[in-house]
């Protein structure tokens, strides 16, 4: 177990950026109760935006255009629907169009089980558009790496956070086995459920490789992804966003294309996430992962 939580890591990265890099942090109600789950430091350089989603994102993009490398906080990923246009139409295009980059670090927080407008995971949408880096760090070390990549490059970055990860102090290692029956690739919050699912499956005699995916775009097809699949000859990509046109299917396609082995996808159903059970359309949990693997192997 590490020393720092993900939330503490984010807060410290933000503090360093604001105090040492002439950085700027913008968002709505970021200094209100809880300071966005205690991820925002109480230092100079924080701009409280009014409740103006599109304008707010445009203002943040403008700050990026003059080199401030803003951290732009979106408290619920569902709000990316409104905040998206300046990011998609401007920040992501400017480097290819004009040779001028617009580096902005978009912290988009996801949640689970709090209804139709606060439980969304929208990183797949941003994978669709050229120009973004998209990642979903769930550990302190992964978050530090995401920040390092942002500062080393000049691309706008969508950081798909999840509230389920904020108190996490542990790093997550891949788990591979010589005679695995299936390789489970996991993205975002299902990463916290996949270990228990693998244990349940093991009791049924099914051995699972577990491979964690942080970087969704660019998705670099590397040995760490391919080797377990070459051995298990069957894969499943599990994500917290919608399955249709989503990260799980897109990455499953890439893996199949590169190996010739079948890789299935598991994400949210094509249904609105509602407030109460059984209509919540929840992120794949231990049981759903278990059931899906059992079905695939039958």
């Amino acid at each position: 177990m590490g020393q720092r939580t993900v939330a503490e890591t984010i807060r410290e990265i933000s503090r360093r950026h604001l105090e040492e890099n002439n950085g700027i942090l913008l968002g709505q109600a970021v200094t209100a109760v809880g300071w966005v789950n205690n991820t925002v430091p109480n230092v100079e350089g924080i701009i409280e935006l009014p409740m103006t989603e599109v304008a707010g994102a445009g203002i943040a993009v403008g700050a990026a255009m003059v080199g401030r490398r803003p951290i732009f906080v979106i408290r619920f990923q569902d709000f990316l629907i409104l905040n998206g246009s300046p990011l998609i139409n401007y920040a992501a295009k400017s480097k290819e169009l004009h040779g001028r980059s617009t580096p902005i670090f978009v912290r988009a927080l996801a949640s689970e089980g709090i209804g139709p407008v606060h439980s969304g995971v929208l990183h797949s949408i941003f994978m669709h558009f050229p120009g973004f880096r998209v990642c979903s760090p769930m550990t302190p070390g992964e978050y530090e790496q995401a920040w390092r990549v942002f500062m080393e490059h000049d691309d706008p970055m969508i950081v798909s956070e999840h509230r389920d990860s904020l108190q996490n102090t542990d790093e997550m290692e891949d788990a591979t086995h010589e005679k695995a029956d299936i390789t489970l690739y996991t993205i975002s919050s299902p990463r916290f459920a996949v270990g228990r699912a693998a244990e349940m499956l093991h009791k049924e005699g099914i051995i699972c490789n577990i491979v964690h995916i942080v970087w969704l775009k660019p998705f670099e097809v590397m040995g760490r992804y391919l080797e377990p699949l070459s051995q298990s000859k069957l894969g499943l990509v599990i994500d917290a966003s919608f399955e249709i046109c989503g990260a799980s299917r897109s990455i499953a396609y890439e893996l199949t294309n590169n190996t010739g082995y079948p890789v299935k996808a598991l994400g949210l159903l094509d249904k609105t996430k509602c407030l109460c059970p059984p209509y919540q359309n929840k992120v794949p949990d231990t049981q759903v992962i278990y059931d899906t693997v059992m079905n695939i192997l039958q």
Partner: peptide, 22 residues
């Protein structure tokens, strides 16, 4: 001179953000 990307008025928040940032 910063480029416009075709969504009319998009340059207004960007200009404001640039003034804020610079």
């Amino acid at each position: 001179m910063f480029g416009h990307h075709g969504l009319i008025g998009e340059n207004v928040p960007q200009a404001v953000g640039a003034a804020l940032g610079s």
